[in-house]
């Protein structure tokens, strides 16, 4: 059940209740903003641009936590920490892992649209 590991169903229900008519707007904002940050990371990782890595991974981590995308937030937290520590080991793998998980989250969210 990918929905259970990738996206916290309780949190998602609460957000749906809180945002009501704006829920689709939230999904739109999250996916667009995160997709934009991923595109920046895709450039930054091969260039070892740690500042951007740190900054954008932190951004995705924060909003993913708010969305209940706990697993994605954890992977991005790892990226962020390495960016901060300027540690280049295994960044490409982490990024592809994060991108894959983002795809999963986006898929689930698309299904949650009201």
């Amino acid at each position: 059940m990918p929905a259970h590991t990738s996206l916290d169903p309780v949190l998602l229900a609460e957000l749906k209740d809180l945002l009501a008519d704006n829920f689709n707007e939230l999904i739109e904002r999250y996916t667009v903003d995160s997709a934009h940050r991923f595109s920046l990371l895709v450039t930054a990782v091969p260039e070892k641009d740690y500042k951007t890595i740190y900054y954008e991974a932190h951004g995705i981590k924060g909003s993913s936590r708010n969305m209940g995308a706990t697993k994605l937030a954890e992977i991005c937290g790892q990226l962020e920490a390495q960016g901060h520590a300027e540690d280049g080991a295994g960044l490409e793998n982490l990024l592809s892992e994060a991108s894959a998980e983002f795809e999963v989250v986006c898929g689930i969210l698309a299904g949650e649209r009201t």
Binding site: N22, R29, D33, S63, N66
Partner: peptide
């Protein structure tokens, strides 16, 4: 906040 999603969530909570 520069994150539009986070902004929207907090805004909604505070307005509620």
């Amino acid at each position: 906040d520069d994150s539009p999603a986070d902004r929207l969530i907090l805004q909604s909570m505070l307005q509620r």
